[in-house]
Design a protein around this nucleic acid. Structure first.
Lengths: 217, 217
DNA sequence: GTTTGTGAAGGCTTTCACAGCC
DNA sequence: GGCTGTGAAAGCCTTCACAAAC
């Protein structure tokens, strides 16, 4: 198995492409489960409701992974995507905000699987500090944020606080040296230059569905 | 306050615009909190890290809400967006999959606020059925899905099962007459014609951050 | 025969920039 | 003076369609 193009300009690749690589990884995992060893872009598209040209184009940004007339080796493809996304090493996550969503994410398989590990859950509410989350991780005081980030080598900060605290926590995370933040608070936060923030507002999806329910289809 | 354009072709409006209306609603709520009564697109853009032309264009699809030389009335704008998104009535939600994420969403404020109400949480695991979720809703048997959808007039189905069950539950929801589905399972599901499915894979966001951590910025 | 990788075309979205209005 | 609403331009993304490879 050849290696993928290692010297990509990441800014030349759209986040839409990156997001789809994640989706392809899920698809490939499914194919491995059912024992398929080789797959064409067309078959993958049909099976998972995707577009075959898009699959080929997305993959081709990173190398020539397929064999013309044949398709892609499922196992190799998985390995390429894992390397491209940087999932071949562990990323340490710190969650701030020990409410429903925060504690759920601690144990959500996606957040504590092969490539990601939740190394702490913080809150500023004294009634929550030192209480265990369902899987036994103790909630710690968010005043210790900078310390913990440093000691536990946190690379990804997750904000699950109320909207009112989110901007402050974002700033504290940035100041502590966290380079990547995933924000679930329903507010647009600004981060300093060089810190990447992705916001996910779950209510947006409900409200989108509500729009379509209201206006017919 | 005049009414908004009521006879929009919803298919002419992009989901990106709809998603941003949700975001604008959050922003407007913040402005109301801090007592601001009138806002220009420019001020809103600066405050919340948005683009002023885009705000104007998004809103203009639905009517002329602003006053030239002045800006938008914050309170009126809120009401317009609420009506456009159909948030002036209650939408009843059924969650299937009583794991970490499913039980967290029951009590997540976004999912049980003014416009949305979780009316049931189902699972097929006997050890979970009849146990209470943190806020006291009893988990029910997913075999009763069709009944419950009908009796409780469910409009939105939320899938928080493992990937392996998601496609089956999606089909059962569609068969039971649910018109809108929000899928959190890490798998692409297909729904029958006429049923809208939005998929949210939380791991995609982590993997996107991992890509950027790996390839620098 | 089949399927990839890819330039070109088409379509969609954002941004610009200004006429029109306050 | 200021700001909205909006055509036009620019930019971005997806899809098409086919030469190259097997």
């Amino acid at each position: 198995m050849a290696s993928y193009k290692r010297h990509i300009d990441p800014s030349s690749i759209s986040d839409l492409t990156i997001g789809r690589l994640s989706v392809y990884l899920r698809c490939v995992d499914r194919l491995i489960e059912v024992g398929i060893e080789t797959v064409s872009s067309q078959e993958m598209a049909k099976r998972f409701n995707l577009n075959s040209a898009q699959i080929r184009k997305d993959l081709a940004y990173f190398g020539e992974f397929g064999v013309r007339g044949v398709g892609y080796s499922v196992r190799d493809l998985r390995q390429y995507i894992v390397e491209i996304l940087g999932l071949d090493r562990e990323r340490r996550i710190l969650i701030v905000g020990a409410g429903n969503l925060g504690t759920a994410l601690c144990h959500y398989s996606g957040f504590s699987g092969d490539s990601f590990l939740v190394v702490g859950v913080l809150d500023c509410d004294p009634s929550r500090i030192n209480t265990p989350t369902p899987a036994g991780l103790l909630v710690e005081d968010s005043a210790r944020l900078a310390d913990i980030v440093d000691q536990r080598r946190v690379e990804i900060g997750v904000i699950t606080t109320p909207a009112s605290a989110a901007q402050r926590i974002c700033q504290e995370m940035a100041d502590a040296g966290i380079p990547s933040i995933l924000n679930f608070a329903p507010i647009r936060v600004k981060a300093p230059e060089g810190v990447r923030v992705t916001s996910v507002d779950l209510k947006v999806y409900l409200e989108e569905l509500s729009f379509h329910l209201t206006h017919g289809r």
